[in-house]
Amino acid sequence: MVNLFTIMLFISMIMFFMYLMLFYKNYSLEKQSAFECGFEPLSEMRTPFSLRFFILVILFLIFDIEISLLFPIISISTLMLSLFMKTSLLIFLIILLIGLFHEWNEGAIDWMSMF
């Protein structure tokens, strides 16, 4: 897998260097300024952003970890799946769903807070 990825990276690097050799150079200062509707860029560029995005990423982290916990169960399920495994998976999913509804009730996943 790693050597396959190296091959792919190598080939895209080759395409990039081909492009570096091909293009026609015509530099000017105005071309290099950042895009801002024809004006000179006046204000700060990397501004602070809404906290919503940050909360969303934290929520994503939780659910992604749950999925990575689900994956071993799936890989075992191709071999065998006992009654105990099935019931524990069910309880796990119930806890997950209740957690999601709790977040919903708290208003963490509302994009615009009502209060």
């Binding site: 950042a34 560029m45 995005f53 929520l59 994503f60």
Partner: peptide
């Protein structure tokens, strides 16, 4: 380092992340 690009990247990453789950 452009405002449009920064906002677009923020939106795109939030959208991709939540739909990934």
């Amino acid at each position: 380092n452009s405002k449009y690009a920064f906002l677009g990247a923020l939106r795109a990453s939030a959208q991709t992340i939540s739909y990934e789950v």
